[in-house]
Amino acid sequence: MEPRTGEDDGVVRVWYDEEGWGVVDCLSTPGGCWTHFSVIEADGFRSLTPGAQVRVRWESPGQDGYDYRAEWARAV
Results as ranks from 00 to 15, higher is better:
1 M>H: 13
1 M>L: 11
1 M>T: 09
2 E>T: 09
2 E>C: 08
3 P>H: 02
4 R>F: 07
5 T>H: 05
7 E>D: 02
8 D>S: 15
9 D>T: 14
10 G>T: 13
10 G>A: 11
11 V>D: 00
12 V>M: 11
12 V>T: 06
13 R>L: 11
14 V>Q: 12
15 W>Y: 15
16 Y>E: 03
17 D>S: 11
17 D>G: 04
18 E>G: 14
18 E>N: 14
18 E>R: 15
19 E>D: 12
19 E>P: 01
23 V>I: 12
24 V>I: 14
24 V>A: 12
25 D>C: 04
26 C>F: 01
28 S>E: 14
29 T>Q: 11
29 T>L: 10
29 T>Y: 08
30 P>A: 06
30 P>M: 04
31 G>Y: 10
32 G>F: 06
33 C>I: 05
33 C>N: 09
33 C>Y: 04
33 C>S: 04
34 W>T: 01
34 W>H: 14
35 T>S: 09
35 T>G: 09
36 H>I: 05
36 H>Q: 09
37 F>C: 14
37 F>W: 15
38 S>Q: 08
38 S>R: 08
40 I>A: 07
41 E>I: 04
41 E>R: 11
42 A>C: 00
43 D>C: 12
43 D>T: 12
44 G>Q: 06
45 F>S: 03
45 F>G: 00
46 R>P: 10
47 S>F: 09
47 S>V: 06
47 S>M: 04
47 S>Y: 10
48 L>T: 14
48 L>H: 12
48 L>I: 15
49 T>I: 15
50 P>T: 02
50 P>K: 07
51 G>I: 07
51 G>E: 08
53 Q>H: 13
53 Q>T: 12
53 Q>K: 14
54 V>F: 04
56 V>A: 08
56 V>G: 03
57 R>C: 00
57 R>W: 02
58 W>Y: 15
59 E>D: 04
60 S>D: 08
61 P>G: 02
61 P>L: 04
61 P>I: 01
61 P>F: 00
61 P>S: 03
62 G>V: 03
62 G>Y: 01
65 G>A: 05
67 D>R: 07
68 Y>E: 01
69 R>M: 10
70 A>D: 02
71 E>N: 03
71 E>M: 13
72 W>C: 00
73 A>H: 06
74 R>M: 14
74 R>W: 13
74 R>G: 12
74 R>S: 13
75 A>Q: 07
76 V>G: 00
76 V>A: 12
76 V>P: 00
